[in-house]
Write a protein that binds this DNA or RNA. Structure first.
Lengths: 113, 113
DNA sequence: AGCTTGTTCAACCATGTAGTTTAGTTAATC
DNA sequence: GATTAACTAAACTACATGGTTGAACAAGCT
């Protein structure tokens, strides 16, 4: 398992900055213009814009350009990959999801999936 | 919610490097000496040792010194925190865990927890 | 005692990152 | 058509990162 590396690298790196995590949280409410994303931070606009680019390059955010405004929205697929990577370690902090998994599997069998 | 930042920063940063993720995977099997962790990588010993230190500083790895050998082991608590942070976005990639959660809750009620 | 092994530390280099400022593009507004 | 607003791009600074090497040190081995 050589691990296609660079993808997870980019995602985890993008998440390793509080400003960027904050932007992702802001996007939970739906699409936002970059200026909206930038506003809460004591930082130049260009600086904030770079953070957005990092998120975009990591595939966490999609951009839609309309007129002079760039609208961003969450793209959680890559976050899911990161989450899946972490889930591997669940057994080291408890077995809750193992239980959940087995329950689900039971369900699937019952429903004849 | 100012987010006590630096902790998650450190964890996600530690996870953003393939070598370090590989080391964590190696530790799934249990405690390992730093030389064991270093062996698979085409990298100086000192270089690998620095990666271990990053993992340790992020709280992902514990170190136990015995004689001249430093043994490392997984400490998944912080990984769990990262996982929890990501789980917030589950609703953006599907509701599987919501289903699992409700199943578990049912179980708890049945068992009168 | 001397050699080897497991490890850290310090110095160094190249590159990356987070931030700035200034300039430039495109589009809405007056 | 001129101004303003939303944004990117480029050049720059300061500092962090990932890697190296070489020196040091502590602890087993013979």
């Amino acid at each position: 398992m050589v691990e296609q590396a660079t993808r997870l690298d980019a995602v985890f790196h993008a998440l390793s900055d509080g400003t960027r995590r904050g932007m992702l949280q802001a996007l939970e409410g739906g699409e936002k213009a970059i200026s909206d994303l930038a506003r809460p931070y004591a930082m130049s606009f260009a600086g904030a814009s770079k953070h957005v680019k990092v998120l975009e390059n990591a595939g966490l955010v999609r951009r839609r350009i309309s007129g002079r405004t760039h609208y961003c929205s969450l793209d959680a697929a890559r976050m899911r990959e990161a989450n899946e990577w972490l889930r591997r370690y669940e057994r080291f902090w408890g077995d809750r999801l193992d239980i959940l998994d087995s329950l689900l599997r039971q369900e699937d069998e019952t429903n004849g999936a």
